[in-house]
Design a protein around this nucleic acid. Structure first.
Lengths: 104, 104
DNA sequence: TTTACATTTCGAAATATGTCGAATTATCGA
DNA sequence: TCGATAATTCGACATATTTCGAAATGTAAA
């Protein structure tokens, strides 16, 4: 996972998708924001084939989900992935979510 | 930072050093465990020069601290680095430490 | 001061990664 | 069915990374 996040383009894509639990929103899968492949590439000066390659890498690393919706393919992050990653650096920490999300 | 953690050898080194806040311990810099370069390499089948190279990469990425202590060089992780990394994946989460550590 | 130990620096070689363009696949609408 | 749009696969190339051994550096002990 860290290897996949270690590339600047892939990290940017991941960050765009990781705003899945905004304040006042429940941190649940249905609330996860989605972007099509094309939308994710906007503003990044990168060939479509390169973008596709990076998305594949993120998906294979288990960082993002992908699903075809008509002509486009939508991408999102499962909030559990964010929790796992966060927890990796904080094994002795208990999470208390704010902003209307679950408290565990 | 993620690029540095993306290599299996470097991730292992980082994990060995990241047990800095065991249950019942305060999460403070003085409590951070330290290993010499040689100790960190134990069990890893890697040449000393390669180990040194990886340590340098981790240090340059801001992930570990290094300081000479006599013949050896000691390495440790500043707990703030762990908090920053954890927070990266959880911008909407408030941390509550357990096990005798500060509560913020 | 000489020696031993711990670690780093410096090439060099093999392998992996990032990138593109061209060709291909998938879906939708005319 | 045909054309347009969205995205992927493939092959090629330039660049970066990982790794090692040999030589150098820094420190302490004999």
């Amino acid at each position: 996972m860290f290897k996949a996040l270690g590339n600047p383009h892939r990290l940017l894509i991941f960050q765009r998708l990781s705003r899945c639990c905004l304040p006042g929103t429940r941190c649940e899968l249905e609330a996860a924001i989605r972007f099509s492949v094309g939308e994710l590439g906007e503003g990044m000066e990168i060939a479509p084939s390169t973008l596709s390659h990076h998305l594949k890498a993120l998906h294979h690393a288990g960082l993002i989900e992908m699903e075809r919706q008509g002509k486009q393919i939508n991408c999102w992050i499962d909030p559990l992935v964010l929790e796992r990653l966060s927890g990796f650096f904080n094994p002795q920490t208990e999470l208390v979510k704010i902003g209307g999300c679950d408290v565990r």
